[in-house]
Design a protein around this nucleic acid. Structure first.
Lengths: 221, 221
DNA sequence: TCACCAGTTAATATCGATATTTTTAAGAGT
DNA sequence: ACTCTTAAAAATATCGATATTAACTGGTGA
């Protein structure tokens, strides 16, 4: 009767499908930074018409993943260390702000969501990396989800994605970081559910800055 | 030979033209908040095809001026008091951040730009309101332009526009505010060129909050 | 050798028409 | 009267083709 099972994941509109695919390809680095994105080429890759491709690219400019040069097409957003550090710093500022607001307005529902998303993230640790990444983002966003400011959360989500992109671009060869990521997440969670804003923020920012320094080193090499 | 004089202001691509026009119409309230934006209707209004309209609308979603509902078209972003207050607060936070950074990194060039843009704003006070608004935005953005963080500046510009939109939506009938806007601008400028970050921020935020309270009152009525 | 200027190629931007989907309206059955 | 189903209308989304614009190439004159 319904097609939810069959079509799970497949988006209703061609535009959304193209948007998702392109977004993923840019975030993972399948489409390298700065690369020209030719409509015809993408049209073939995505097996759809020019209009959805074009519209998807327009939408991706919002996310700062694609640059649009009038009359001259699209290209994947460039990447460089300065931009990375800008993102990292801005992200730390905005996420701290959002986390403090979330904790200040804490509710049982929010708290329970933290527990749940954290649990799911742990569970997915063994599975496919894409599954984990998804759960990881969900957990981090859950931390901020009670800030009361959807726009702030949106900015944070955007910066999160941009950061992930740099992680994928930079961490090409080298193995996963040696730090105990799981422990860092537990620390953050613990502080949050205890409404300890200072500690939660300190842990969160340490979590980001450690990854940041690691990536910055990779980018030099 | 060339058409620069004739075509001044007319954008090169139909998409950009549509983008500019629609943006303006939403900011000024010519397209009311929440209104359904039918392609066919806009196609007639803008005298262009469906593709440019569609693409312009997609671009406007980045600016949070248009909402896209998959398979169900576009509509002008809704407006309500909660959203307005969210914008105001976020704007105060981000602009303070950017202004402090700008002052901390002050250079003669930046300082001179402040003087210039302020002067131009004063000059344009008598002229057409649209001219003044343009100069007003330029001045305010110049204050933040030395923050060293293009993304932060972009967010501020976005919030600025959203705020202006509410000003246009709310201040329908009532006359321009009685406050001495010019004096407030001078205060901000003075503090900035003296590298007095605390005072500059205090003045800037006061400037925003006063307008904000005024608008909030309008919105109740 | 180099800058400059056609002519050619390639890519973008745009149009008009069609397929899909949603919304509206109407009718049948309970 | 009310809901459910079904037909008609309207609007969105998409396609394929064309016009417009930018990029390239090779040759010409200093």
């Amino acid at each position: 009767m319904n097609m939810n099972d069959e079509m799970a994941g497949k988006e209703s509109s061609a535009t959304r499908g193209a948007y998702m695919t392109l977004r993923d390809m840019i975030l993972t680095g399948a489409l390298p930074a700065g690369q020209k994105l030719k409509i015809e080429q993408l049209r073939g890759l995505l097996k759809t018409g020019a209009s959805p491709v074009r519209e998807a690219l327009s939408l991706l400019t919002s996310d700062m993943l694609v640059e649009r040069i009038d009359q001259r097409g699209f290209r994947a957003a460039p990447a460089n260390k300065a931009n990375f550090e800008e993102i990292l710093e801005l992200r730390c500022t905005l996420e701290e702000l959002a986390l403090r607001k979330s904790i200040a307005a804490a509710t049982p529902q929010w708290e329970e969501q933290l527990i749940l998303t954290h649990h799911r993230m742990r569970k997915s640790a063994g599975q496919d990396i894409a599954i984990f990444e998804e759960a990881h983002k969900t957990f981090h966003m859950a931390l901020l989800a009670n800030s009361g400011s959807p726009m702030l959360e949106r900015y944070c989500a955007q910066l999160y994605d941009l950061n992930i992109r740099y992680r994928n671009l930079a961490a090409g060869g080298s193995k996963y970081q040696s730090r105990d990521i799981a422990a860092e997440h537990e620390e953050i969670l613990e502080a949050a559910v205890q409404y300890n804003a200072d500690r939660a923020c300190a842990c969160l920012l340490k979590h980001y800055r450690l990854t940041g320094e690691y990536l910055a080193r990779e980018m030099d090499a």
